[in-house]
Nucleic acid binder design. Structure first.
Lengths: 388, 388
DNA sequence: CCCTTTATTACAGGCTCCATAGATATTCAC
DNA sequence: GTGAATATCTATGGAGCCTGTAATAAAGGG
């Protein structure tokens, strides 16, 4: 059905998409009368549009709400189950794959443990195992996926290549998009893991709806990601939030201040920080001083970003954010002397799935883009195929 | 003419606006056939739409292009002269008002000299004199203006209040929007001067079309402004680009390194920098060292922003940018060790009108917003009235 | 069992768009 | 100067979509 310029069919397509969008954003069943109010169309037109959407499979009828006065109205809901997307977190210690529906709700996940010394090909193999496990648990095939986004440590450029990595020796230069493309036919995106975590917090977590925020990954290697004007800020070459590379911030070495504490004696580097935070919480002066020193350095880099961007919120994520009750007040105190206005600081709420969930969010953005702004054409629900 | 939801009249409005937009963005007369190609409509529909736009006064017919084969086509242009906007630069040393047409071309300007010690009420009086001079030169009345934006030093919050100023002792807290509103009935916006300069460079200057850039105001009091994703980044409280407030950058004192040079002996602070840059250009080692020191400190704050944002471009504006041939290479060298990727650095091209022009750009954005996205209604050209 | 309330269905009317064909205006070739 | 070629303009017919109104259907309360 070829449609030209400002055709009447175009108007119908617009109205159809507007109705579908209204149902999608309502996140609850709507009656025709409610849709009339939301779209501004007449009841007759909405009836036509809804019939077409139902016939194509985008929406489904649910049973009428009981206990209402008058003839009960039919209710329709957006079918979040017609498509699924995949979010993948390729971390140092684990690979996590999450399958979500079109509302971003987790359907199933698969997890494979790896470690710092896992070789590149083994890690890539673990990615497939996690994906397969998630797909099996979701009862889906790879060809059912409408989109996939993988998060990796390191700088990820526009072409999806991992260009700089510190944690994993042989990971630089890996072509994740190419690897995933061997078995996935849907559109694939690769992004930095902290950026995906920030996106997840802004969509599903503690920063829901905040337009400008700085996400701080606090851990042995701190990092940062930015949401600006409601969108993930990727930067020209993908290297945003790297203020920690400046020597004056001390970000590269600041975790050491925690590890030399007596409270951490004998513990593994992973354990050390938690022990020090616990000791500080219990009142150990040495541990408290170490936390303050850590917060002082963290505040230097954070202040640079806050003064540059004046965000509404700072979100604390990463391993150390589990001790936010100790770290957050220390960071707040340390930021005070640097900032004109200290933004709100809140700890992450999503936990260790946040990177994979952020990947799903990014893939869903792509699905929405395709659905709502691609020439306004309304098609049958189907998994899009990668073109390249 | 009341129009509901997905009315057919709505479709006509959309098509009308699309045609108008095509004519506006072409910035040159178009024939009906060219409009058919750009809008995707049929010739018959475009004919109708154009007739209405011409009758309403939005577009005008120009004489046909000679020397073409076949019957010469009528040509139409967007009437950039039906409306005007005002850009105002309230600086330390001058007040400059610029009247532009809807294409952002300067029609006339008015300028009043002031200085650091001009009292608040005198400066506000100078603003009116500059505005009146510009209006007289343009042959317009205040009621003809479709929008006005004033740029001021200091932090400007969302309500248009100037909250923090360093250069002018009694300027903090001034309610510029209220002052301008006494005689201007159009929508009024107040913004920080560096932000407006950045916008002007991105729309009309050296950074035309660049999506992500950092604008560096280099002068005795350096500052910065950000364009992110093609839009001015205002921040939560208006205090963006203030990384120079961190002591470690040395921005507050770095101009002193220039003024203590022998090359600047006896000169006024305003003159000193230019003399030192001249001496450095001529090969004076002491001056070159001073420039390098200045560039080193400038690079500290710049690197923090570049590492945070990974912009495509850095634009050098402000007084010292006239000596960009000396300063730019020094800044480039000083940035090298800090950055993963040193962005392109270019000197400003717009000169001292840039803040006022940026104000006009911001006012024009508001005009476009109102014209193209306000419920899709197409009205007669007229100066909008402020509601508040 | 009837009445009220609300949702659905059917039909007429109006508006806008597109396609096609004929009329018009200019240039180029001879 | 005349005619062919080219491209634009004008007018008409046909089709699609939306709206409004009136008639019909379905549930709950008295």
């Amino acid at each position: 059905m070829q449609v030209s310029g400002g055709d009447l069919q175009r108007l119908r397509q617009q109205n159809t998409l507007n109705s579908l969008r209204a149902l999608r954003e309502a996140r609850a069943p709507l009656t025709l009368t409610e849709l009339v109010a939301r779209t501004g169309l007449s009841r007759a037109s909405v009836g036509d549009v809804v019939a077409e959407l139902q016939q194509r499979g985008w929406i489904a009828e649910v049973e009428p709400a009981p206990g209402t006065l008058g003839r009960p109205a039919k209710r329709y809901r957006f079918r979040t189950d017609v498509g699924h997307v995949l979010g993948i977190d390729i971390g140092v210690h684990k690979v996590l794959a999450v399958v979500t529906d079109l509302a971003g709700r987790t359907i199933a996940s698969g997890r494979v443990a790896v470690d710092r010394h896992t070789a590149r090909h083994e890690r890539l193999e673990a990615v497939w195992r996690a994906i397969d496990a998630a797909l099996v648990a979701a009862g889906r095939e790879a060809s059912d996926l409408w989109g996939a986004t993988a998060g990796s440590t390191g700088v990820v450029n526009r072409e999806g290549l991992v260009t700089r990595v510190h944690d994993l020796p042989d990971w630089a230069g890996v072509d994740l998009a190419g690897h995933l493309g061997q078995r996935l036919t849907c559109p694939i995106t690769i992004e930095n893991d902290s950026k995906l975590a920030a996106l997840a917090e802004q969509r599903l977590g503690v920063a829901a709806g905040v337009q400008d925020l700085v996400y701080l990954h606090v851990g042995r290697r701190p990092g940062a990601a930015l949401i600006l004007n409601g969108r993930l800020h990727h930067g020209f070459s993908g290297a945003t939030g790297e203020v920690g590379l400046m020597e004056v911030t001390g970000w590269r070495t600041m975790a050491g201040h925690l590890e030399v504490c007596r409270a951490a004696a004998g513990a593994s580097p992973e354990e050390a920080a938690r022990l020090v935070f616990d000791a500080a919480r219990a009142g150990d002066p040495e541990a408290q001083a170490a936390v303050d020193t850590y917060a002082h350095h963290l505040a230097l880099g954070t202040a640079a970003m806050v003064l540059t961007l004046d965000p509404e919120l700072v979100v604390l994520g990463g391993g150390f954010s589990r001790s936010a009750d100790v770290l957050l007040p220390a960071l707040n105190r340390a930021l005070e002397p640097h900032c004109l206005r200290v933004p709100g600081i809140r700890p992450s709420t999503l936990g260790e799935e946040c990177v994979a969930l952020g990947g799903a969010c990014l893939a869903l953005d792509d699905v929405d883009e395709r659905l709502f702004s691609l020439e306004g054409a309304i098609l049958d629900p189907a998994a899009p195929q990668r073109i390249s």
